[in-house]
Structure formats: structure tokens, C-alpha cells
């Protein structure tokens, strides 16, 4: 069991957990992920590392409770525990192998969309600690959905917050902010974009035009997360890659996003059924005639 030391609601249905996981805290790096299970019969849920404290032996994760399995996390409080917590998995961000002086010469732009703010944070923090200041764009649907703004402000060079509906910060999608920054005369050597696949796709379409090398963090369906099942395979360039062992970060200009987005839908119906069954309990017998009921 892995003790939860802190549990906090960051925004509607977005929760942060600080978890005691000594082995993982000792070895994880920005860009890597973990897999958690809430209960003994729970699903294996992959989540990107949001922060870690080697001395305290803790790892921080951020979850959006949308499916049947993540919904159970809503109820977790400090003092509760995750049944399983394994990691770190996947490769660390590439820049952690680079020389800090070299990194300082580069102009780096981070683009975070929604929940993607959480995995962007440890990367920006790591760079900040090495004396590298980077620009960060954080996008969210509405003002309520902006997360970790204060934390990010403390480690980012320039922070640009934008909301789709204009209820806070700049107005419009993250791609619009990139365009605006370029129009203001800014220029970058590398971009790291993390968020929903659709956002990463459009960021990549734009940065291709801007000739801006872009790294994305892919979050496909996974089962074991250790290179055994192949569920997370993606087409990158002309090659098949496993996000769990080769990634999760890839050259965004080479990723086949359309295929990846289709693959994300594989269990959408099944997950919906599980969710409805959970919500409706014994009363769920497929009376709607659409979902297939308890089949």
C-alpha cells in the first residue's frame, strides 16, 4: 500500500495526490510516468509524474476523474492509500541528459493544455533549478480549469495563461498564443507540448510551419506499462514505437496523431458501459437498447 500524504482538488474533477513511494521518488525524472491502482481489483492507470521529493520519498500525481476507474479516486483523502503504485516508467525527457550551459543558450517554449500542465511542471522546475528560464503557455477551457498557476509562475520565465472562452488571461487556444508570441517577435529553438492529443496535433501542425522542433508526450491506452502488451503502440515516422518503453515523449512532427486518436477510442464504448453500470448499479440492464447493457 502507498500512503497518500496530501490530497487536494485543483479544479472541478482534477485532483492532486502526494504519495509515499520511496523507490519511485528516488529514481524518477521529469517526463516519466507511473501506474497506479486504487483498489485490489482496480484498473492500471498510467499518470505522468508531476513532482517528486527525493528526501521525503514522495511522488506527486494529478488525475482528472473522468472514467469509471478514476472516479473512485475522488473519494481518496490524506491517510488513505493507493493499492499499487509502480514506477518510474518510460524514458525521461531528453534535456535532462544535456549540459545546463548548452540548455541556457536555447530558447525553450513549453505548451501545456489542461491536465498537461501537471507533467509540464516538473520539466520547467527542473530547468529552473539548473538556471534555465523558459517560457510557458498554459491553456484551459475556462478560468475554473486553470491549474497550478502559482507553482508554475514560481519556476517559469514568462507565463502566458489563456482560456478558450476568454474568462481568464489571454483568450483562445494555445496555438493562438504561439502565433501571437511569434507575431510579437519571439522565436524559439525547441517546443515541448503536453496536453490532449488534439491539442498536441494542432500545436505540431503550427510549429511545423514555424520550423520549430516540437516534443510531445503521448498518453495512449496502456495495460502493463512495462513493454509487455503493445497496446500503446504508435506510428512515429515510419516506425512502430511503444509509448511505454520508447516514450512517452516523441518528436511531435513525426507522430501519426490521427491514428493515435482513433486508437484512443478503442474502449470508449466499453468504458462508458462500465461507468453507467457503476452509476446505475443493479438498475442498469441495458434498457436504453443502445449500450448493450450488461453484456
Amino acid at each position: 500500500m502507498y500512503q497518500i500524504l496530501e490530497a487536494r482538488e485543483l479544479a472541478n474533477s482534477i485532483y492532486l495526490f502526494v504519495v509515499e513511494a520511496k523507490r519511485c521518488a528516488a529514481s524518477c525524472e521529469p517526463g516519466q510516468f507511473v501506474i497506479v491502482r486504487t483498489t485490489e481489483d482496480g484498473e492500471r492507470i498510467p499518470l505522468t509524474v508531476c513532482d517528486y521529493d527525493r528526501d521525503a520519498g514522495t511522488v506527486t500525481i494529478v488525475v482528472q476523474t473522468i472514467g469509471a476507474s478514476t472516479l473512485a479516486m475522488k473519494e481518496l483523502k490524506a491517510g488513505d492509500a493507493f493499492h499499487d503504485f509502480v514506477g518510474p516508467l518510460g524514458q525521461a525527457s531528453e534535456f535532462i541528459k544535456e549540459d545546463a550551459e548548452e540548455l541556457k543558450k536555447k530558447k525553450i517554449l513549453f505548451v501545456a493544455g489542461g491536465l498537461g500542465t501537471a507533467p509540464v511542471y516538473p520539466q520547467v522546475k527542473w530547468l529552473h533549478e539548473k538556471g534555465v528560464d523558459v517560457d510557458v503557455i498554459v491553456g484551459a477551457k475556462t478560468k475554473d480549469m486553470v491549474i497550478m498557476e502559482e507553482e508554475m509562475k514560481a519556476v517559469a520565465g514568462n507565463l502566458y495563461v489563456t482560456t478558450d472562452d476568454g474568462s481568464y488571461g489571454r483568450s483562445g487556444m494555445v496555438t493562438k498564443v504561439i502565433e501571437d508570441l511569434y507575431a510579437e517577435g519571439k522565436k524559439y529553438d525547441v517546443c515541448v507540448a503536453i496536453g490532449p492529443m488534439i491539442m498536441m496535433k494542432f500545436v505540431c501542425l503550427l510549429t511545423k510551419k514555424l520550423d520549430l522542433h516540437t516534443i510531445v508526450s503521448m498518453n495512449p491506452i496502456m495495460v502493463d506499462g512495462t513493454g509487455m502488451c503493445g497496446a500503446c503502440r504508435l506510428t512515429v515516422g515510419n516506425e512502430v514505437k511503444f509509448a511505454c518503453v520508447d516514450g512517452p515523449e516523441f518528436d511531435g512532427h513525426l507522430v501519426n496523431f490521427d491514428e493515435a486518436m482513433k486508437r484512443q477510442q478503442i474502449y470508449k464504448t466499453a468504458e462508458g458501459r462500465a461507468f453507467l453500470k457503476e452509476k446505475e448499479g443493479d438498475t442498469h440492464h441495458g434498457g436504453c437498447g443502445v449500450c448493450g447493457g450488461d453484456k
Binding site: 495495460v223 513493454g227 509487455m228 502488451c229 503493445g230 497496446a231 504508435l234 512502430v240 486508437r263
Partner: peptide
């Protein structure tokens, strides 16, 4: 890591490795 054949269409939805 599971092996695939390398034939067209292998990443379609509904293609699984036996391991998965």
C-alpha cells in the same frame, strides 16, 4: 515486447497482441 508482422493495417482498432 510483442512482435508484429509489419503488414499494412496492423495499428487498426481491433488488432491486439496476444500479450495484451
Amino acid at each position: 515486447l510483442p512482435k508484429f508482422m509489419g503488414i499494412p493495417g496492423e495499428n487498426a482498432n481491433g488488432v491486439f497482441s496476444a500479450n495484451e
